[in-house]
């Protein structure tokens, strides 16, 4: 492998990781944009998503170490698994909002944020109790097709992650930019009181933000399983922390910022692991975060002072 091939390979790996972080980061940013709340429960919605995906694949008869699927069966299984995982995760997000966060809505201070940490641990422990502490093998229904680009290798699983991530992010962007509910979400993020006085039912906007963010996190969790062929109750914290970093890096509350931040963090992780060491990946990621926040406190695409009175 020449140096160029190595860089290309790290770029492929980094963009794939970054796409997963971006999907997860979008959930932080959607909820923060509207409630100014950092939702730490989101970490483990991602983790639960990977277990739901695992359960769904097994329900469809796709077991770990089974031979790969092909053709329409593969497409059907993937579509159904993604759909069920996303709906389940989205519903979980809505449930968390209704049960744990709405009662605290009008309480000032960190009560809601602390509650999301508690909910995160509840999810973590439910999965630990239900499925045990050892890592679970994840089925790999994808054929081992790969393409050589120079000396670098592009596998089908990476292509799958890219296609699905681009589709989901494109869909979200369309939703936020052009649909009535999407516009209500933007209006509520910019000025909640004024939005309410236009007749926007802010509770519905909040539920929508939780549903969409959590559904994307669930899709990310399923991708994580398909990518690494493994899942565990602990995956939420590391991926969640990196995705949260991605959201802050891009400018929390900003949808394109979360996507950009995710890709940057994925690339930093891939190249940092290669140049220095995988053990140092978090050190590098958080150092970059600190530097960005020192020189651009609102994040790369964020705005310093939200226009609120």
């Amino acid at each position: 492998m020449t140096a160029v091939d190595v860089y290309l390979q790290q770029a492929i790996n980094g963009v794939s990781l970054g796409a997963m972080y971006a999907l997860l980061a979008l959930g932080f940013t959607l909820v923060y944009g509207i409630l100014e709340l950092i939702n730490f429960a989101h970490f483990n919605v991602f983790m639960v998503g990977s277990f739901v995906g695992l359960g769904m694949l097994e329900l469809l008869g796709v077991m770990p170490n089974d031979p790969a699927l092909t053709g329409l069966t593969l497409v059907g299984v993937l579509l159904l698994t993604f759909a069920v995982t996303m709906v389940f995760s989205g519903a979980l997000g809505v449930l968390i909002e209704r049960v744990a966060l709405r009662p605290l809505r009008n309480i000032r201070g960190p009560a809601s944020m602390i509650t999301t940490i508690g909910v995160s641990y509840v999810l973590f422990n439910i999965v630990l109790l239900g499925f045990g502490a050892d890592a679970k093998n994840f089925p790999s229904p994808l054929p081992q097709v790969q393409f050589a680009i120079g000396g670098a290798v592009l596998r089908l699983r990476e292509i799958l992650i890219w296609v699905i991530s681009i589709g989901l992010m494109g869909g979200l962007t369309y939703f936020v930019q052009f649909t009535k509910m999407g516009k209500a979400m933007r209006a509520t993020a910019q000025d909640p009181d004024a939005a309410r006085m236009m007749g926007v039912e802010v509770d519905r906007v909040i539920i929508t933000a939780f549903f969409l963010g959590s559904a994307l996190a669930g899709a990310g969790g399923l991708m994580f399983g398909l990518y690494y062929n493994i899942t565990s109750y602990v995956i939420g914290f590391q991926a969640g922390l990196r995705a949260f970093t991605a959201a802050v890096l891009g400018g929390i509350g900003n949808v394109p910022g979360a996507m950009l931040g995710g890709i940057i963090i994925g690339l930093v992780e891939a190249f940092g692991s290669y140049w220095i060491s995988a053990a140092w990946a978090d050190v590098i990621i958080f150092s970059i975060l600190v530097l960005v926040l020192v020189f651009k406190p609102a994040g790369l695409l964020g705005r310093i002072a939200p226009n609120k009175s």
């Binding site: 516009k183 933007r186 910019q190 000025d191 939005a195 236009m198 926007v200 226009n307 009175s309």
Partner: peptide, 30 residues
């Protein structure tokens, strides 16, 4: 708002990062 009361808020309170057209659309939300 549905019954026919609409506000012109103090300090205008437009949605600052939405276009003029989108602000008008928000007025017609109901």
């Amino acid at each position: 708002v549905k019954r026919g009361i609409a506000p012109v808020l103090e300090a205008r309170r437009l949605f600052p990062r939405m276009t003029v057209y989108e602000n008008l659309e928000m007025g017609a939300y109901t």
